[in-house]
Simulated assay, not measured.
Amino acid sequence: MQDKSISFKTVSLQKDESVLNAIKHLLALVDLSLDNHVNDFVVGYVEQQIVACAGLDHNIIKCVAVHPDYQGSQLTLKLINTVIDLADEKNQHHLFLYTKPDNVPFFKSCGFYPLVKIDETVTLMENTPVGINHYCQKLAQHKKVGTCGAIVMNANPFTRGHLYLVELAAKTVDWLYIFVVEEDASLFPTAIRHQLVKQGVSHLGNVSVFLGSEYMVSKATFPSYFLKDQTLIEQTYMAIDLLLFREYIAPALTISVRFVGTEPRSELTNAYNQAMPYWLEQKALSTAPIIKVIEIPRVTASNDVISASRVRALLAQKRYQEVYDLVPKSTWSYLQQHYVIEDK
């Protein structure tokens, strides 16, 4: 059936819901499901039937599927090239995709290069052979001597709890690097969170604050559509993120310690904390040096742990007096300007 003419079209699910069920049906035929973060698709038609699709979520290619009757490397190659053209139109030039390891040779032929592989479950690839190396070279320009540690935080927003963790960690190592996760799905945009962290730790002489990168995998962007088991989805996301850190980011800055606060509330975050020693400390899992994980108990206020989620909840309820007790002065100053709070 592959000799039939196939035409490609770009569709937006928000504007063209008529194709939604057809795409879902095609994905189901190849044991995939629709990723809810994907709105833009390239679809291949034979007459009125959708026989191929590939989605684009910002700079991540997702939901690549070809009808079993039309599967073949040439059609799939045309499909990938077309979705790359779509990304180019949207000024997304640095692309990533997640695929099953069996598909890696094909995607290599499309110009993608593997970054990390998790067992036989998933491989993360990017469309450049030098992307992560260039990023690490830039990081290495800020490399310090001595024992170096790191904290990766969302800081949504930066609280006294974060500050406690940073100050304690900074006393433990010669130099501390903080990475602020790049994710605008948060209540506080990335640029604001980065600014608040920098202001909040400016009194510390051995701390550098970096904006996170695309090589720090967000749960929001991890494609769960080809993994059916929720536990496996979460474990795989954590493994990719931690191995990227261990194999690329940490060596660039000679990071040998990673600090994290305990997590009594979020099961997912607590599971991530528990995964850290497994992926960072076990010698057999990577040729990269091991990274010691130090978990620091959360600081409390009014008999409850200080957390960003607690601050956000209090802000929503306009309980500003309680917020004041949970955030450093720099964060409070920002909140005063943006939440119309009277001076203390």
Rank of each mutant, 00 (worst) to 15 (best):
131 G>I: 09
142 H>I: 07
105 P>S: 09
262 T>K: 03
289 P>L: 12
99 T>K: 00
245 F>K: 04
272 Y>P: 04
19 V>Y: 03
328 P>C: 06
166 V>T: 06
35 D>T: 09
95 L>F: 10
112 F>C: 07
317 Q>D: 13
60 I>F: 10
84 I>N: 01
282 Q>L: 13
278 Y>D: 02
73 S>N: 14
90 K>D: 03
314 L>M: 10
59 N>V: 07
111 G>W: 10
188 F>A: 04
326 L>D: 03
182 E>D: 15
284 A>Y: 15
329 K>F: 10
193 R>D: 00
180 V>D: 04
254 T>W: 00
57 D>S: 06
260 V>P: 06
294 I>S: 08
203 H>Q: 14
216 M>I: 15
107 F>Y: 11
22 A>D: 04
241 D>A: 00
289 P>V: 13
34 L>A: 00
220 A>M: 11
173 V>C: 12
239 A>R: 01
194 H>M: 11
166 V>M: 04
224 S>H: 14
116 V>P: 00
52 A>W: 00
291 I>P: 04
27 L>Y: 07
188 F>Y: 13
130 V>F: 15
156 N>H: 05
180 V>P: 00
288 A>E: 07
233 I>K: 14
112 F>W: 08
329 K>T: 13
260 V>E: 07
137 Q>Y: 12
161 G>M: 05
219 K>Y: 13
195 Q>I: 03
123 T>S: 06
344 K>H: 14
328 P>D: 06
339 Y>D: 09
49 Q>L: 04
258 R>Q: 04
48 Q>D: 15
189 P>R: 08
145 V>M: 14
80 I>L: 06
332 W>R: 12
100 K>G: 01
320 Y>K: 06
283 K>I: 15
261 G>Y: 04
169 A>N: 01
93 H>S: 14
227 L>F: 02
216 M>W: 04
42 V>T: 08
124 L>S: 00
222 F>A: 03
142 H>W: 12
308 A>Q: 01
67 H>I: 09
223 P>C: 09
249 I>N: 03
308 A>S: 07
212 G>S: 10
73 S>M: 14
223 P>D: 04
318 K>Y: 07
194 H>N: 11
55 G>V: 02
6 I>Y: 03
